[in-house]
Design a protein around this nucleic acid. Structure first.
Lengths: 236, 236
DNA sequence: GCCTGTTTGAAACAAGCGTTTGAACGAGGC
DNA sequence: GCCTCGTTCAAACGCTTGTTTCAAACAGGC
């Protein structure tokens, strides 16, 4: 009884990376054991079999992100400010969890293709609370919208964030590895936030918002007629 | 020499579904052969080995979607109309290709997690041409935007479409299987298009656009100060 | 120091994998 | 009719997989 918990922890960490990298079927308990630096039999001794190891890995991955802040901490400032904060923390949480190319989120992507029972748990305990809060923000902005519309609005917000995780390899091939790596979380968050706020009418439209305040009224004629009298400042 | 091409085609179709469902490592050439209704040895005879079968499947998947229309056919109407058409055809192409839960797109999702050399080919021949056209539309709308901004704008558009494929299982768990299935491609496309157009200043903001024209000026005070004098009609 | 229960180690297990084999099959040319 | 060539088939081949085994190593209680 020297270091049972240490062996278990090493196995879960190694298995997380292996499963994320090669998938459940592709990863072997031999390669996992080697990566963890423990004996093959340890998997069977501590977890029973490969499948139960995978379950434990998913449960562990679930708790790797930032913990949910309290409602009082979350709903401060204007809806626009809340949305900005939501987007930035969501984005940050997506990209850099656990590092090693964020294996908990990669595992999540695999669950989206081939869901197991663990996905329901993660959605219930991690994803839905955050999504409900987003819906609350959106409802204060669009009190007339029905459920379907609110849901699609919520999807519009999260989809733009999730994209930079799920489609990263394609984005890199489209705009080049260099430019893709040079995009900071702050820059992306700022873009997504101003896009959503502009769509919701809480900020000036995008082509104007991207410029300095002095240039906002000097557009070249495309989309003429749209009002942008307030120069991109946030309301409320 | 009875039906060699037929056997190859059956194998590729069956392998596509199996690889999409279980991944490269998870699918066995035995299960593929059974699904195709051919002998196991046919895989080795026609393709050499499992890996080269996978390559052929990806190449075949690539040509399953709608073919690229000509520039003359694509760039008709106002930029707003072009964007609407792009979004709807892109969305339609994403969701219902090849049916059987769109295995070519599912295979693509697996490539995003574990890219092979085939991904570069697909990006070069299928994805980049479409993305470049989207950028062209966006550039006519935002002539002042630099490359980085245009790229992020493009990502904002495609991400909202891609979401309904990549994150479908989570979306279904969030809003319920019933509501998720009831969302039509037309409805989603309309939502995404009006979101993007509103963000770009080519349409009225979303909360207004979702209502009838007579209700647009009677909002309840949230986000007061935003201009919506033109009542949601499209410009240009 | 010895016993007890827990944890590790190297080796072996059956099962399933991708792949190969060699015979059988069937259509066309002579 | 017979030979040839491309294709299919059932069976077998190694090899790797997940899993099990059993002896050795270990800390703590007496």
């Amino acid at each position: 009884m020297i270091c049972m918990d240490e062996t278990k922890a090493k196995l879960i960490a190694a298995a997380g990376e292996e499963f994320a990298l090669k998938g459940f079927a592709g990863a072997t308990i031999r390669s996992i054991s080697v990566r963890a630096g423990v004996n093959i039999a340890a998997v069977n001794y501590h977890f029973g079999d490969k499948e139960r190891l995978y379950e434990q890995v998913l449960l562990a991955a679930q708790h790797q992100g930032e913990p949910l802040v309290s409602d009082d901490e979350f709903f401060v400032g204007t809806p626009a400010e809340q949305l900005r904060r939501f987007i930035e923390s969501f984005l940050r949480n997506l990209v850099q969890v656990g590092c090693e190319e964020s294996w908990p989120r990669t595992l999540m992507m695999r669950e989206m293709i081939q869901p197991t029972a663990a996905l329901d748990v993660v959605v219930r305990e991690e994803i839905r609370p955050r999504f409900d809060r987003l819906l609350t923000i959106l409802q204060t902005v669009c009190p007339e919208a029905d459920h379907r519309r609110l849901h699609m609005l919520g999807f519009s917000v999260v989809s733009q964030c999730v994209f930079y995780k799920t489609c990263k390899v394609i984005a890199a091939r489209l705009i080049g590895e260099a430019e893709c790596r040079s995009l900071t979380i702050e820059e992306i968050a700022e873009h997504i936030a101003s896009t959503c706020l502009a769509a919701l009418g809480l900020a000036a439209p995008l082509d104007a918002a991207g410029l300095g305040p002095n240039e906002i009224t000097t557009r070249t004629g495309k989309a003429a007629g749209t009002c942008r009298s307030d120069g991109g400042s946030l309301e409320q």
